[in-house]
Amino acid sequence: MLVVDKGLQKLLKNVNLSLRDRTLNYPSREAIRQYLGKKVGIFHKPAPLKANTLEALAGGRPLLGVDGSVHSYGATFPHIIHCFRALAAATTSAVENGIFQVDLFYPEMAPHRREIEEMVSRAAADGEVLTPEAAAARVVRQKLAVLEIEVAIEAVRRYQPFAVLFDGGFLRYGGLAPSQWQTYRELSLARDVMSVGVIEEVGTFDLARYVSGSFPGATSFGCDRELLFGLLDRGEWLAIREGLKFKKTYYTCFARPGRHPGVVAYDFFQEQSRQVAKFIPLLFALTPLGGRGIPHWLDLVDNAVRIRRSEMELLLATGLDKGVRERLFVPKREGRIL
C-alpha cells in the first residue's frame, strides 16, 4: 500500500489553507462578469450550429489540423537526439494520409553545431548571454515551429481548406519563425483560409492584471486561467474589445466549449477578427462536450503525429549501433530495476 508521507502532507495542507483563503476572498462571479462585460469585452452565447449546416459553411472545402511533436533521447547535453515530426491533415482523408515532415537535431553534428553557435551569437548581438545548452533548446523549439508552419503551407496549397486549426497559440510561431509565419499568414489570407490557434492551457496574465485592483479588498487574480475558471457558461465565449489588444498582431478570445469549467483560448489573425463570431460556433460543433475543449480533429492529428517513447526506442534500436547507443545516449536511469 502507498503510505502518504506525513511531513509532506502537512506542508501541502498549509498550501491548501492559503489557497482556500484566497478563493474565499474572490469577487463574486457576477461582479467579475459585469466588470468584464463593461470594460473588457462581450460575452457571447451563440446558438448551437444547426445539423447539416457545417458543409455549407465550409463551402465544400476541408478542415486542416496542424500539429508537431518532438521527442528527445539521451542523458546529458550535447548527446541528446531530437526527432521532429509535423503533420497537417485534411478531413477529406484519414489522418495518416496527411502531409508529414520529419527532422532530426543532434548538437554534435557539424551543421547543427553551427546552428547553435549562430543562435548564441545572435543572442549576444541582442545583449543576451546564452549557454550552448540553452541555445540548443531554443533551436529545437524553433525547428519544431518551422516544421509545423512548413507542413501547414504545403497543405494549404494542396487541400485548399476553409480553415486551419493549429495546436497552440500564434505567438510561438511568430516569435520563433517569423519569416515562415509571415509567408503562411500572407498565403492563408490571400486564399481566404481562416486560421485558428487553439490554446489548451491559457498561460496569459493580461486580463488578470487588468481586473486586479478593480475590486478593492478582494483577492487579485494571478493569471487568466485563475480568473476565467468557471466564469463562462458552457457554450459561451468572451470577445475582447478591439481597443484592448493584448497580443499585438493577433485577436485572442476565450471560450468554454464543453462541460469542463476551465477555458481555452483561440488566436486569430487580426485581419479575420470580423469573422470570428461566425466561426466560433463551428469550433464548438467540432469539440466534444466531455473533452478537454480541443476540437476532435486536432486530437486525431495530435495522436497521429506524436512520437511515442516506444517508437523512439524502436528507431534508435534499429538506427544506431548498439555500442554507440550505450556509450552516448542510454541514460543510466533506464537501468533502474525498482
Binding site: 447539416n52 458543409e55 462536450l289
Partner: peptide
C-alpha cells in the same frame, strides 16, 4: 459525441 462525429463527417 455523435454530434462531433457527424459534423466531422460533413467535412469529409
Amino acid at each position: 459525441d455523435r454530434r462531433v462525429r457527424e459534423n466531422l463527417a460533413q467535412l469529409g
